[in-house]
Computed example of a mutant assay.
Amino acid sequence: MASRFILAISTSSGVAKVVATTEPHGSDSLGAGLFGFEIVDYKSQSAQLLPMIRQHLEQSGAQPAQCAAIAVDIGPGGFTSLRTACGIAQGLAVAWQVPAVPLTSFECMLPEQYSDQSFTLLIDARLNEIYTARIRRTSKGTEWLDPPHLLAMDEFQNIQGPAVCDANLYAQRANPGKGIEPGVVCATRLAQLAWQEFAAGRVVAPFDCQPLYVRDKVAQTTTERLALKHGVI
């Protein structure tokens, strides 16, 4: 029988990242990679994602019938990019009659070696703010010690390790300090965690896979931008 695979889609970082991996066995924590690709151009992601997934499926010889689940990074991240990823994940899951596995960008950024350890995750949210959460990854899934929330950028220097932050934030910290490490939202990590979730039965129906928006507002109004520019707010 042909190997099953999970298709993992992540767009929260602004770069669309797609990976397909087969089911892991034994000591192999990930399984074999069928294919992977990235779309850097933000504006073309919604138009290119589906055609490129189809192209890579054909080139790899993988069939939709072999798909076990669709994994998607639900954020937090860019408003439009999250909607694109979740919409494509929902559509494929319905068409292929498979469940969805939603995971957050925080989980996708925590390296495997830090499983069973409590870590603060920090992601640049723009607008002078940071998305942050504190989690521990265990055999029972993700334990949320501090749920996703916003942090003012000027509080970043007060963060103490152990913590993982995205490269943009890491570059902004004058003195990273002990226990503060750079990280990246990773589609391969998304696929790895998705297999763990799938094996444990922690899956959802396609339309239960929704973007995680931590911020109530995704952009400033023209009035707010002008006021900020002139020091009013």
Score class of each variant (00 low, 15 high):
residue 103 L to R: 02
residue 129 E to N: 06
residue 104 T to M: 01
residue 138 T to R: 14
residue 125 A to Y: 04
residue 137 R to T: 07
residue 131 Y to H: 02
residue 119 F to K: 09
residue 129 E to A: 07
residue 118 S to F: 01
residue 121 L to T: 10
residue 118 S to A: 11
residue 105 S to V: 10
residue 121 L to K: 00
residue 132 T to K: 05
residue 121 L to D: 00
residue 128 N to S: 04
residue 127 L to P: 03
residue 129 E to S: 08
residue 139 S to W: 12
residue 138 T to E: 10
residue 127 L to K: 07
residue 128 N to I: 06
residue 105 S to P: 05
residue 119 F to C: 07
residue 136 R to D: 04
residue 129 E to H: 09
residue 138 T to G: 01
residue 122 L to F: 04
residue 111 P to D: 14
residue 114 Y to M: 15
residue 115 S to T: 15
residue 138 T to P: 14
residue 117 Q to K: 04
residue 118 S to I: 01
residue 109 M to R: 11
residue 122 L to G: 01
residue 138 T to Q: 02
residue 131 Y to F: 09
residue 118 S to V: 12
residue 106 F to Q: 00
residue 134 R to G: 00
residue 139 S to F: 14
residue 115 S to Q: 15
residue 106 F to S: 02
residue 125 A to E: 07
residue 105 S to A: 03
residue 123 I to L: 11
residue 105 S to Y: 00
residue 137 R to Q: 12
residue 116 D to F: 15
residue 122 L to A: 06
residue 138 T to K: 05
residue 118 S to N: 04
residue 111 P to S: 09
residue 103 L to G: 10
residue 122 L to T: 08
residue 105 S to G: 11
residue 118 S to T: 03
residue 128 N to K: 12
residue 136 R to M: 08
residue 120 T to D: 09
residue 125 A to G: 11
residue 111 P to Y: 09
residue 120 T to M: 06
residue 120 T to L: 09
residue 106 F to H: 02
residue 124 D to N: 09
residue 137 R to F: 15
residue 129 E to D: 00
residue 138 T to A: 05
residue 139 S to M: 10
residue 134 R to H: 00
residue 117 Q to D: 10
residue 127 L to T: 04
residue 141 G to S: 01
residue 134 R to L: 01
residue 123 I to Y: 13
residue 138 T to V: 04
residue 136 R to Y: 10
residue 109 M to H: 10
